[in-house]
Design a protein around this nucleic acid. Sequence first.
DNA 1: GTCTATACCTTGATAGAC
DNA 2: GTCTATCAAGGTATAGAC
Lengths: 194, 194
Amino acid sequence: MTMNAISNTRQQIIDTALQLLMQRGMNGFSYRDISEPLGIKNAAVHYHFPSKAKLVKSLIRESHQALRKGTAEFMAYGGPARPQLEGLFEFTLKQCECGRPVCVAGALSVDFEELSKGTKEALNRFMMDTLDWFTRVLETGREQGEFQFNGNARNKAISIMAMIQGARQFARIHGHKALECTFEQIRTDLGIES
Amino acid sequence: MTMNAISNTRQQIIDTALQLLMQRGMNGFSYRDISEPLGIKNAAVHYHFPSKAKLVKSLIRESHQALRKGTAEFMAYGGPARPQLEGLFEFTLKQCECGRPVCVAGALSVDFEELSKGTKEALNRFMMDTLDWFTRVLETGREQGEFQFNGNARNKAISIMAMIQGARQFARIHGHKALECTFEQIRTDLGIES
DNA sequence: GTCTATACCTTGATAGAC
DNA sequence: GTCTATCAAGGTATAGAC
């Protein structure tokens, strides 16, 4: 009824839907799956997000903003690189533990062809922003002697981000050990003593 | 009508369904999507695969057998390691080019919670077999001086397989350059001159 | 083995009352 | 903003004829 109530429901819908998207993929949940745990009806969800396509686009935007916030605080640009890498590992582990086994990009890559052009672009921008941040972490780390690796930092960033995304999916199938093994291997590949 | 016709339709269903699974995920295609391009009706598909759950399980089995065949011939155990690594890269590229953007494990990891216990186990065995083969390639390569890397070969195998799986999804969103960058990075990390 | 026909369910979405 | 009621469409699956 008040502004708070409005934003509150909207935010709860986003939170629930994001969880469902990461757990089951875009075609694995319905408006009913969102509304039921919130104690509302599916028509109420349609009020806030008229179509599922718009809802998914909002979920990408939400994840993107969360990343910007994360890189601005917890994973601040410009600081020492090693804690930022470890922060990324911790973030990933925490996501998996709180019921978000795969990331948004991983989930949506499966449904990619169904997405509208604008949604595809939003997803691509989200990925590019993540890569920009992580490329910088790697460059800084190498300059400051925290990391050792050969070759182009961008390639290395792509390969490590891909590795983490793939590892989350491995972990879902084969257990969380796959995640820890992967983190350990990334450290080894960067010449970090563990 | 004849034995050949029977096996033929069954195999065509498997081929079509496998393609659809890799393109759209488990909830992204229907029996109609399978039957239509084959010029049959959806009831005919149900004759060969009574339920979708059983169909998916057969698709995992199919992929698993294809891998065994691949590792027995093209990627033979025991030979030099470098060509086997390059064979894996070529295989991955070819899959992406022929409309199989993500791998079966990548697609199904999103729908993992929906799967029956037996199907989950089949998927896990498929993954373990792949890892066993690739671990051996890496070990052999290191012993023979073809590859250089630190740490446990199993961890390295997990991390590289995860990297390739993740890279396929990146490539779908951001273009095939992500795949090539990743392969290049894997070579660099293994101390291979490119 | 494949067909037609159909039962039954869930889904995304809309209209209109409150 | 949320509800009830309803819709058309599409999904899985089955029965029985051929």
